[in-house]
């Protein structure tokens, strides 16, 4: 078990390094975008004086390196800073916004991130069992009409852009047969049932996007094992094909399946941007889009860090779980 712990620690260390690299890249690329917050927020009112005043207020006139390290030290001490938009408006109002106060990025992100997690959870609860079932059945009845239909269906849904899937779902499930609402405007004081109902269409869209990958990996991993001698032995003993697959093949196929599931869970957290905009879902993706539009660097940075952290952690989890599910990896020679 010690080796597992060691791997986790080493991977976490690497993860922190990755996060650092990501933050440098994000900072550079946001800075390379033409225009800055002052110009974006002022629009036609962008007289040189007004731009200079806002840049002065937000410290945008400092060199990029200084700004980056100011921000980095803030993050290391748990302070994600104040979003430019909030800082700018409190400058309008002439009141101070403190660390971690109403205007802080952390306070702004938290409810949005919770919403995104909720959506990811609902999608995962639908898509994981669904794709496992579909995959196992496809392995069981491989090369049958069912197998082909499932493959064609999931592959075409993963090949379509998300917004297209979203509009197809809206057309069929909200307009033609109004089962679900087309707007997913959930908010804090909503009952769980309402919340689930409102989240259903974006969750289904995400399900359509991630199912193909997981389902095909399940199918492939199982079929791969079906040629092994121990499976043949089991079949010779007269065990039913279903039992062969679920009891004998599946446990050994878990490692690659878990890997793919974790990757797709990461996608559920980070890939929601377009889906959230289409369904007006108040999650982190929508906030991200709004912030990029006005070049609100602190918010964009924080969102990117969250996305990167989600990827790193879920990948780590995938590795750990596949080690645990595989005795050979658990006890390396």
């Amino acid at each position: 078990m010690h080796s597992v712990l060691f791997i986790v620690i080493r991977r976490l260390g690497l993860g922190v390094l990755t996060l650092f690299a990501v933050s440098v890249m994000i900072f550079l690329s946001v800075n390379m975008l033409p225009g800055d917050f002052a110009e974006a927020i002022l629009g036609q009112g962008a007289t040189p004086e007004a731009i200079a005043a806002i840049r002065e207020d937000l410290g945008l006139n400092k060199p990029a390196v200084t700004r980056y390290f100011d921000w980095l030290f803030g993050v290391l001490t748990g302070d994600f800073g104040t979003s430019f938009a909030q800082a700018n408006f409190s400058a309008f109002a002439g009141e101070a916004t403190g660390k971690g106060g109403i205007g802080s990025v952390a306070a702004q992100l938290e409810p949005r991130f919770m919403n995104t997690l909720f959506l990811a959870m609902v999608s995962a609860l639908i898509s994981v069992p669904l794709s496992l079932t579909l995959g196992i059945l496809a392995a069981l009845f491989r090369n049958s009409a069912y197998d082909r239909a499932v493959n064609i269906g999931t592959l075409s849904s993963i090949s379509s852009p998300e917004f297209f899937l979203a509009y197809v779902l809206i057309l069929f499930l909200a307009v033609l047969t109004p089962i679900f609402p087309s707007l997913s405007n959930i908010y804090a004081d909503m009952s769980m049932a309402d919340r689930l109902e409102r989240t259903m269409l974006p969750a289904l869209t995400l399900t359509l996007v991630v199912t193909a990958h997981m389902m095909r990996m399940t199918r492939a991993a199982i079929i791969n094992l079906l040629a092994s001698p121990y499976i043949e032995m089991a079949r010779l003993k007269g065990i039913s094909p279903f039992r062969v697959i679920v009891v004998h093949a599946l446990p050994n196929a878990l490692a690659p399946i878990i890997n793919v599931i974790a990757l797709n869970l990461a996608y559920l957290v980070t890939g929601v941007v377009v889906v959230e905009v289409v369904f007006v879902y108040p999650g982190i993706g929508q906030l991200f889009v709004d912030s990029v539009k006005i070049r609100d660097i602190p918010v964009v940075q924080a969102c990117c860090l969250i996305f990167a952290a989600a990827y790193i952690l879920l990948n780590l989890m995938a590795d750990v779980l596949s080690i645990i599910s595989n005795p050979r990896l658990r006890h390396p020679k």
Binding site: V175, P181, S182, L183, V277, V280
Partner: peptide, 19 residues
Amino acid sequence: SIAINDASARMNALMTGEV
């Protein structure tokens, strides 16, 4: 009032009677 900056989503909300 629901903030819907995306034009298609806004028209959609009206068409489906959400607003």
